[in-house]
Design a protein around this nucleic acid. Structure first.
Length: 803
DNA sequence: TAATTCGCTAGACCGA
DNA sequence: TCGGTCTAGCGAA
């Protein structure tokens, strides 16, 4: 009996049914989430040959490791945007692993020219070919659970539900080992319930006592099934909670059938690590989400444990309980309440965190046709690649292959020249205006129609009108494949931003549209970088080089024009110009200047007045040249903007960073150099007196290689190695928090993990000479102070003589 | 199988 | 013990 289903497409994968790989969909309807199969969709890839008919005959007979092709169609496709459609073979298979076998062997057949689209994951292939948008509605005609017809059907009105869980484990040795160490408590949180399962009795109302660990794990599974959330959320569940839970469950022979079809969580290789999938009830790892946000520079934190993230993103302070303390609480049976509170807080925080960012990832899913499981673990490359793959499919153009390793290597060896950074005029400046280009790289690509397929089109007119400073030029007659999609995305975002102004902040609609434009922003900003990413399918060195060459030309032009117009251009970095407004010029003059420039810029390119500033300082390096990418500004409301300096770096001690900030504030905002000197002297005195607290002495540095791979062992590596000997679990990726103590010869010798250091145990000489003084001296020097002046006597300098 | 290049700085390393 | 060079990390855009 045929029936019609309308619901939200929440997940997609495939199952093996006999010889066939069959697409499986999870569709959430108002009643329940349905598991459906689409048996009509088959794995395929393309082959072009010298003689198609002949090749077809040969291949139909062929058998590789006992596997034959299911059927072969002859289709017409463009091999690239500029080529005429031509005939080629579409090899269709029963199963994905048949395809995998064939794609390697088929290259050896005589007459073979090329293979294409042989490495698109089956579920993604399906979503593209059927033009479906995960997390949006689909309308399905089905016979039982078999899909007869499926198409997209707009946006859902309902929000998704989430359930998060978190484990607390015992550590018999140095750290928890699932082979021997039990799970102590498990928290679970959703909109409907908050509870902690525990094998010890704890008095809070939300704690549910279970006699054994086995029963506790079973209770978690039951809880998830009962609560039935759309998504399952963890913080670092990909690497810790799920692998641990699976290991323990196996030992107790418990089936973790928390998936919708009764399936157990399954680890899947993904990027550098692995991701854990729960079928039909997608598992989203909030830690992965946070990492992506960090990569896209949506957030920037000292470290990414749940406590730091909670405070920074939710504004909620959360106390961390160390593994040793968990053991102690458990063994003594004292303070079990504290452990339960901690455990439930983890689940609740994880839930809130995901709630905040889920809309963004849902929009990314819709935009690039990724299931949420994938979009929540994506990369810039993937986002752009899938957008282009989708466009290629729609236009009947074949997707380019991924490059060979040899190509990747050679591409790696010839980087392009990047943006232009003007050497600043060092010193203190008054009355500044900062101008910058809005979305410089995308706007250049759109305005100059930069795309691999418009490159050097052969038209004399295009060469005359649209040549990059590199000598390459781009077609002005035909819209480019890449620049075309960029323009479309750009216009969509522009429209959304306009809509946003009409909406009430905080409303559901506002959040939705905001997330949508944010998703577009992330993708728009990713295009240029992928162009020169060696593994990118649409890599084009010429296009990338043209973008930056034009960017250098434009930013230099602004600087020059500013000078010609009676301003003084003092600095600029990639897309900006810093102007000093002289006595005889006004803010209005700056605005007029910007307007004039904009009337001359091509296409959608736009110069923006970022802001006016009362004062700014640029400093001199040891070499005597002015330092780029380091400056501080103060606006007319007294707000400081500190860029590049130690203050914004996590690998400097808080005492140095804070002193630097206060010095900058005294000088820029109050114009009081002597106050700045006093601040420094006071901090030095505190250091000498041993009064500076640990937290202001801690330096954060990430380990970025294996501990044994380092040629040069810096303080963070030395501290980490010592800690590993004591049993800490530290490796590539860990962020080391260390302090320079008094014991040892070199700085590395003296470095110890902050958690092992007692208050007051620090090398004050190091913190004075290697932290505080270097952080402030460059700034003070611009105003006539020397290191001696700071360490010893006072010196009176009048600020007015420097401005 | 993590988008790019430009730039600054500290501290180890190494040979004289 | 010194001074130059190299390794390493992080930030700007």
């Amino acid at each position: 009996m045929a029936r019609e289903i309308t619901g939200v497409l929440i997940d997609a994968d495939y199952r093996q049914k006999g010889p066939d790989s069959v697409i499986r969909l999870f569709v959430k309807t108002p009643e329940k989430t349905e598991e459906l199969f689409d048996p009509d969709f088959e794995p395929y890839f393309y082959v072009s040959a010298e003689k198609n008919e002949k090749m077809k005959k040969i291949l139909l007979e062929k058998e590789f490791e006992g596997v034959k092709v299911k059927k072969i169609e002859i289709v017409e496709k463009q091999l690239s945007p500029n080529e005429k459609p031509e005939k080629l073979l579409k090899l269709i298979f029963h199963a994905t692993f048949d395809l995998t076998k064939w794609r390697d062997k088929v290259v050896d057949i005589e007459g073979f020219k090329e293979k294409r689209e042989y490495d698109i994951p089956f579920h993604n292939r399906y979503l593209i070919d059927k033009q479906l948008e995960p997390t949006n509605l689909v309308k399905i005609k089905a016979d039982g659970n078999e899909v007869l017809e499926i198409k997209k059907a707009g946006e859902p009105k309902e929000d998704f539900t989430m359930g998060s869980f978190d484990l607390e484990t015992y550590s018999r040795g140095k750290f928890s080992d699932a082979k021997t160490d039990p799970i102590l408590t498990i928290s679970y949180a959703s909109k409907k319930t908050e509870k902690v399962l525990s094998t010890k009795k704890i008095k809070q109302k939300y704690v549910q006592f279970e006699e054994t660990e086995q029963k506790m794990i079973q209770a978690l599974v039951d809880e998830i099934k009962k609560d039935n959330p759309d998504f399952l959320i963890t913080y670092n569940g990909d690497s810790f909670d799920f692998p641990y839970l699976k290991d323990r469950a196996e030992q107790f022979k418990i089936k973790l059938d928390m998936g919708l079809d009764g399936a157990e969580p399954k680890a899947k290789r993904k990027g550098f690590g692995s991701a854990v999938q729960v079928k039909g009830r997608p598992h989203l790892d909030a830690f992965q989400i946070v990492r992506i946000l960090a990569r896209f520079q949506v957030i920037n934190l000292l470290k990414y444990d749940l406590e730091s993230v909670s405070e920074a993103l939710l504004g909620e302070k959360k106390e961390k309980i160390q593994a040793a303390e968990i053991n102690q609480i458990w063994d003594s049976g004292k303070d079990l309440e504290k452990l339960a509170d901690y455990n439930i807080a983890d689940a609740i925080t994880t839930h809130k965190l995901t709630e905040q960012y889920l809309p963004l990832f849902l929009e990314l899913s819709r935009l690039v046709k990724h299931v949420p499981f994938d979009s929540s673990r994506t990369s810039a490359g993937q986002l752009v690649e899938y957008l282009l793959m989708n466009k290629a499919f729609i236009e009947g153009i074949l997707i380019p292959n991924k490059p060979f390793e040899s190509d990747v290597k050679s591409r790696d060896l010839s980087p392009i020249t990047g943006g232009y950074v003007k050497e600043p005029r060092p010193g203190l400046h008054e009355n500044l205006a900062v101008l910058d280009f809005t979305s410089l790289h995308p706007s250049i690509m759109i305005s100059h129609n930069i795309s691999p397929d418009t490159l050097n089109c052969g038209h004399a007119d295009c060469k005359k009108k649209n040549s990059a400073p590199t000598g390459d030029y781009f077609c002005t007659e035909k819209k480019g494949f890449m620049s075309g999609i960029l323009e479309e995305l750009f216009n969509r975002r522009k429209k959304l931003k306009k809509e946003l102004k009409e909406l009430k902040k905080g409303s559901r609609e506002y959040k939705l549209i905001h997330a949508r434009q944010h998703a577009l922003k992330i993708v728009l900003n990713s295009f240029y970088g992928t162009l020169v990413f060696p593994r990118f399918r649409w890599y084009s060195r010429e296009c990338g080089a043209a973008v930056t060459a034009w960017s250098r030309q434009y930013v230099k032009m602004i600087s020059k024009r500013a000078d010609e117009n009676g301003f003084e251009s003092i600095y600029g970095d990639t897309d900006s110009a810093f102007l000093k407004i002289p006595e005889n010029k006004t803010k209005q003059n700056v605005k007029e200047f910007v307007k004039k420039i904009n009337s001359e810029l091509p296409g959608i390119m736009n110069l923006e007045l970022e802001d006016f500033y009362k004062r700014g300082i640029f400093v001199t390096k040891e070499s005597g040249e002015a330092a780029k990418k380091r400056y501080a500004l103060v606006d007319f409301k007294g707000n400081l903007k500190i860029v590049g300096f130690e203050y914004v770096r996590r690998d400097w001690a808080g005492v140095a960073k804070e002193t630097q900030r206060e010095v900058i504030a005294a000088i820029l905002d109050e114009g009081d150099v002597d106050k700045a000197a006093k601040i420094v002297k006071e901090k030095i005195k505190q250091l000498k007196d041993g009064k500076t607290p640990k937290k202001d002495l801690t330096v954060f540095t990430q380990i970025r290689q294996g501990l044994d791979e380092y040629k040069s062992v810096g303080p963070h590596i030395a501290a980490a190695k010592k800690a590993v000997e004591k049993g800490k679990d530290l490796d590539s990726g860990s962020i080391i928090e260390y302090i320079i103590t008094r014991r040892g010869k070199s700085i590395s010798d003296k470095a110890q993990l902050a958690e092992y250091v007692k208050e007051g145990d620090y090398d004050e000489e190091y913190y004075i000479s290697n932290q505080v003084i270097p952080a402030v001296i460059k700034i003070m020097r611009e105003l006539g102070y020397s290191e001696d002046d700071l360490n010893h006597g006072g010196k009176q300098v009048d600020l007015s003589s420097f401005s």
